[in-house]
Simulated assay, not measured.
Amino acid sequence: MTKKIQILIIGHNQNGITPKTEKIAYETGMEVAKSGAVLITGGLEGVMKAASHGAKDGGGITVGIIPQNEPSPANEYCDIVIPSGMGLARDFLNALSGDGVIIIGGGAGTLSETCAAYMHNKPIVAIKNSGGIAEKYADTYLDHRKNVLITGVSSPKEAVKVLLEKINSV
């Protein structure tokens, strides 16, 4: 049996999501499902919920790795809930669980996950028109080491296509 590719989508929580970002996240989740990959998110609200909703509507499998120590805070679109009990340290668990990462908007928590993925040389794609961390770091490196170029893309379809190409070339 071949392991399924796991794509982590990160971005704004409920405090920062806009209708535009929510639509982008939903469509990206749908594209992940269409690709046959497993969607991983932080399992809560905002981009996490919208992406999970899109993946579920697309017939995909969704995993939510939440910071709490019991499953009830997870959004209703998570097939599998992993209550990490790790608080914000779960950002590293999320980053290491994905074969690659798609950034949609995002603030400090998203940056934390991006840094964790970057330090572990995970392929990273940022949707440029989604605001926040995604726009700020699209087409750049996080530091002088140039571990991973965060590739900027313009659509959910392109995000999944480019990320899968990067994952499959590793």
Rank of each mutant, 00 (worst) to 15 (best):
G64P: 00
G64L: 03
L88S: 13
A108K: 15
S52D: 01
A108T: 07
S84G: 07
A55R: 00
I103G: 13
G105R: 12
G109W: 05
T62P: 03
A108L: 10
T110H: 07
D91S: 15
I104R: 11
G100W: 09
L88E: 15
G106V: 09
E76V: 06
G85E: 14
M86A: 15
I80A: 12
I102L: 05
P73T: 06
G85S: 05
A89Q: 14
Y77F: 15
Q68G: 00
H53M: 08
H53K: 09
L96A: 14
L88Y: 15
P83Y: 10
S97V: 04
H53C: 02
A50W: 00
G87H: 14
P71C: 14
G87Y: 14
V101I: 12
I104M: 11
E70W: 13
A74L: 03
A89K: 12
Q68W: 02
A117W: 03
P83L: 11
A51L: 03
V63M: 05
I102Q: 04
P71H: 05
S84A: 11
I104D: 13
G98E: 15
A74F: 03
Y77S: 02
S84T: 12
S52R: 00
G85D: 14
S52L: 01
P83M: 03
N69A: 10
A95W: 05
V81W: 03
G59C: 01
I82T: 11
D57M: 06
G87M: 14
A55I: 00
V63P: 07
G59V: 02
E70D: 08
G59N: 02
E76T: 11
G107S: 07
I104V: 15
P71M: 06
G100E: 02
I103D: 03
D99C: 08
T114M: 08
T62V: 09
G60S: 04
V81C: 09
I82G: 11
L93M: 14
Q68H: 02
G107E: 08
H53G: 01
G85T: 10
A117T: 05
N94I: 13
S84K: 03
G105W: 06
N94G: 08
G107Q: 06
N75W: 05
Y77L: 02
A74K: 05
V63F: 14
D57V: 01
I65H: 10
Y77W: 13
L96W: 10
I104E: 07
F92L: 13
G100M: 04
A50E: 02
E113M: 13
T110Y: 02
E76M: 12
C115V: 12
G105H: 13
N94R: 07
P71R: 08
A117H: 06
G64I: 01
I82M: 13
R90D: 11
I102F: 02
T62F: 04
E76S: 12
G106M: 05
C78E: 06
P73Q: 04
M86R: 10
R90T: 08
K56H: 00
N69W: 09
V101S: 08
P67K: 01
V101W: 00
V101K: 06
L93G: 10
N75G: 07
V81Q: 05
S52G: 00
